[in-house]
Simulated scan of single mutants.
Amino acid sequence: MMRRITALMAFLLSMNTLLFAQYDPKALGILDAMSAKYKSIPSFSAKFTYTLQNEMEGVNEDFKGEVAVKGDKYRIKMSGQEIMNDGATSWTYLADINEVTIDNYDPNSGDMTPSKIFTAYKKGYKYLYLQDKTEAGQVYEMVDLVPEDKNQQFFRIRMQIHKKDRTLKSWEIYDKVGNIYRYAISDFNPNQALNDAYFRFDTAKYPGVEVIDLR
């Protein structure tokens, strides 16, 4: 019973955000500063924690991973899986079955990738500044993004942005079936020397790999 009440309260709070979401100039200033910060960094790597929660279903899972980003290219390592994207093609490799799936990458898709999270607000979203939040002596600005397209699977992205250096500490994606996907960044390393080949799958490095090409 308590779980249902908590879930209901969370839903009502989320509806409050949807009702008041707007093109908030304060939120825009915060997001522009964050975007400019990352635009000035040619490439970076970081560690992250990924959490999936769904109170109604009793789901609470978390995984640790690593991410590297260079422009519109990215590479993610997490829980026996690697995702590589060179801006045109994506590869998803599953270590336990030694299999890679190859597909074309559509930059105009609604997927929130590591290379798009810093600029997503510029098109198709309303944005709202919520509050400043202090954690471990650091001040973060909380901003909500709400998609203009009501048919999107998710209805809110909540971003936590460091007030001083404008780096993105975490973001949460809320979908319509009660899932909350949270990504928390740690060990951020700017200006990593990453060549373009790092973001492509090299079959020679994975002997016996099964290739599923969907292009």
Rank of each mutant, 00 (worst) to 15 (best):
K70Q: 12
G87A: 04
V146S: 02
T89K: 08
Y206H: 13
D202A: 10
I161V: 15
L19Q: 08
L13R: 13
T101F: 12
E148P: 06
L168N: 02
L12C: 12
M56Y: 08
N54Y: 01
D175Y: 02
E82W: 06
F188M: 01
D32F: 00
E55M: 14
T119M: 07
E148C: 07
R200I: 02
Q160F: 09
D165V: 09
G137Y: 06
W171N: 01
L214G: 00
R182T: 12
S115V: 11
T167M: 10
I76M: 08
N54W: 07
D72T: 12
D165E: 12
F201Q: 04
F188G: 04
K73F: 00
V211F: 04
R4M: 13
A36T: 13
V146L: 03
M9F: 14
L214R: 10
D196V: 13
D72F: 07
D96P: 05
L31K: 07
F118D: 06
T134Q: 14
N179C: 07
K126E: 07
E82D: 04
L13W: 07
A204D: 14
Y50E: 14
K126F: 00
D106N: 15
A27M: 01
I102W: 02
K64D: 10
S43T: 03
L8D: 13
A68S: 12
E141H: 04
E82H: 04
R75M: 10
K164V: 10
D144E: 09
K126A: 00
P207H: 01
Y74W: 08
P190H: 00
I83F: 05
Y125D: 08
A10T: 12
E172P: 00
P25M: 09
F188P: 03
S45L: 00
R4G: 09
N151G: 14
S45F: 01
A197C: 05
G124D: 09
A197G: 11
T6N: 12
M78A: 12
Y181V: 03
R3H: 13
S115A: 15
F48P: 05
K26I: 15
A46W: 02
A88D: 13
E55N: 14
Q53I: 11
A68W: 06
Q153I: 00
K64S: 14
K205P: 01
E148N: 11
D132S: 14
I185M: 13
I161N: 03
G208E: 07
L214Q: 10
A10M: 15
T51D: 05
E135V: 14
D165T: 08
E172V: 09
M159Q: 06
N189W: 05
T6H: 13
A46G: 02
K164A: 11
Y183E: 05
G71Q: 07
I180A: 06
W91F: 07
N195H: 11
Q53T: 15
I185T: 06
W171D: 01
E135S: 09
Y183T: 15
N16L: 09
D175N: 10
S40Y: 11
Q152W: 06
I83D: 02
K126Q: 07
T134W: 09
V146T: 00
D187E: 12
P147H: 08
A204C: 10
M15H: 11
R158P: 02
Y127M: 13
R156P: 04
D132G: 08
A27H: 01
K123I: 09
K77R: 10
T203Y: 04
S14Y: 04
V100F: 06
Y198L: 08
